[in-house]
Structure formats: structure tokens, C-alpha cells
Write a protein that binds this DNA or RNA. Structure first.
Lengths: 148, 148
DNA sequence: AAACAATATTTGTATATACAAATGTATGGT
DNA sequence: ACCATACATTTGTATATACAAATATTGTTT
């Protein structure tokens, strides 16, 4: 991926600006591949993230705030993400009896099934995206990302 | 920025998956800062990108396809981005006389003014975002990004 | 020249997201 | 108990984006 080719410029871009453009281009590319990978399963990246968080709960329900604080999206949209998953029977939602302001969300076996199906494909996809990296370079890359 | 802290997990994440999550988190952070920086000027990141492409044309008009191929967004949305800029008098749009299917878009002096105003602030912002990087590390980071 | 294909852009629509306000519930002070 | 405040979530709304179809113009074929 060459930045100058993609944005079609012949001018020299300052290193700082180039880095941030580069980052965005790479992120877009990765997102496109991810969305396309999930498309056959009818879920978006964010819906997938919610499902994984719920699976991580290992049968304990999660309330909306818990889900939300582990994601990048805003609270109001987390509600709507759960709505979508609910419509597909991938989660169940009920009001918490101890504190009726809260809602308890749990992944269903149908939701777990679809996640398990995706797991293998996702690992393949990740390997493909990162095939040009050595383990050493991946670690190095993560170290650099930590500087942001 | 520690990935495990942000997504609040205690589990070991496989290096490949961790890398892609890390990338997304960093990109989100950078985008947030950029949007916030542009907010006082009333333009979005994408609108800003269009303006810069137009400035790069150095008085020659650009048609929609030209703008679009230098951006990540889809054609139909480029139309709407230009609509927004038109409403702010940052660009003018007219039908190309040689080929009436095409439209010619040019940045106005008002558009140039706002870009010039933003230039300095943007450089400051970039420095701030990348303050923990040495020049050497930035180059290294770009080399790694090229592997995607 | 009429018909068809190719090109350039726009419009319609569904989904996604950000931000502010509204709703419903619980808690602490008086 | 009453009231203000805090908390948890939802709803409303504007903007952003993806995808498909529609429109308008030009180029090509017969």
C-alpha cells in the first residue's frame, strides 16, 4: 500500500501528515475486509463485537453500560445494536430484577453458534491481512501503536 | 494506549487479533481529535479532504470523479460532500462546457481562507498526536503500515 | 439518424453514528 | 414521605455512509 499512489499526489507529504493518512487508509482497508467477511452472516462489525463481549461474560448477563464501556460507540447506539441482535434472536434482553433501571443482556445458543462459525473464518482473515508481517514485526507494530 | 485496559479484558488476545483491535482503537482516537479540531470551523474531516484536493488543483477545476478517486468515500457521497461545501460558499460548481455530463468544482477564496486558517492548527495537532514518536520511529511505522 | 452502450453524476433508501433531550428508577438529605 | 439528584437506558434528530437505481449526456454501431 503506497500512500502517494492511493491519494494520487506527486507532492511530498510531510511525514507526520503522511503517517496519519496512511493510518486511515490502512484502517479503511481492514474494515472493508472485515465487513465483507461478516456480510454472509448478516451482522456488522459492531454487532459482532457486542456478541463477543457477551460470549466473554460466560453465561453471566451483561448490562448495557458494561457492553458500552468495552466498545468505541456511544451508549445510545449500543441500545440499537442490541435491538438488531435481538431481532435475529442472537441475544435476549430483560430488565434486571435487582435494579430495574438496568437491562440484562445474554447471548443465546443461536448467537453462540454463529460466533463459533465466524471464529475460524476470522482467524483466516486476520492471517491473510497480516501475512506480510513476521511475529517480530507485529510486536514492533503494537509497540508503536502504543505511542498514540 | 493499552488495548487490554481499553476493552477491559484480562484474557490474552492472540497477537493478530490484538493488532487489528489496536489499529482500530488508535484510528478512532485520531479521528476524534481531528473532528474536534475541525469542529470550530464547521467542517467534517471528509469536507476538509475535499477542500485540500481542490486547493491542490491550483486553480484548475476538478470534476467529481477526480475528487472521488483521491478519497475513500463513495461517489454518491462525494456529491453530497460538495453540496455541503457549496452551502458554505467554500466551493463553486458548474457544468463542464466541453462535456456536459461532468461538473467542474473549484475552491473559492473563502474556502482557501478557511483552509489556510486550519493549516497551522492541523500541524500543531499532528505534532501533538505524534509527540511520542521519534522521526526514526515514524518512518519505521510507515514501513510497517505498507505491509497491509 | 435511431438504437444501444458507456460515462458522469445524482437521487433514493437503508443503515450507522453522534449528540441532546426524555424517560423511568433508585438514592440521599431533610 | 417528599424532593432533588444521580443513574441507566431509550428516543429523537441530524449527519454520514453504502449500495442500488435513476437521470442526463456522449460516443458508437448499424
Amino acid at each position: 500500500m503506497n500512500v502517494e499512489d492511493i491519494i494520487r499526489t506527486r507532492k511530498e507529504i510531510p511525514l507526520e501528515a503522511r503517517t496519519l493518512i496512511h493510518l486511515t487508509l490502512v484502517n479503511n482497508k481492514v474494515n472493508e475486509i472485515m465487513s465483507a467477511t461478516l456480510k454472509p452472516f448478516g451482522i456488522s462489525i459492531q454487532q459482532f463485537n457486542v456478541l463477543r463481549i457477551l460470549r466473554g461474560q460466560e453465561n453471566r448477563p451483561a448490562n448495557l453500560s458494561t457492553i458500552n464501556e468495552r466498545m468505541v460507540t456511544k451508549m445510545s447506539n449500543t441500545t440499537r445494536l442490541v435491538d438488531k441482535l435481538l431481532a435475529k434472536d442472537y441475544v435476549i434482553r430483560k430488565i434486571c430484577p435487582q435494579n430495574r433501571r438496568k437491562v440484562e443482556i445474554k447471548i443465546t445458543s443461536k448467537g453462540l453458534d454463529v460466533l463459533n462459525e465466524i471464529d475460524g473464518i476470522k482467524i483466516e482473515m486476520e492471517k491473510k491481512i497480516l501475512k506480510k508481517f513476521t511475529k517480530r514485526q507485529l510486536k514492533e507494530f503494537n509497540v508503536l501503536l502504543d505511542k498514540f
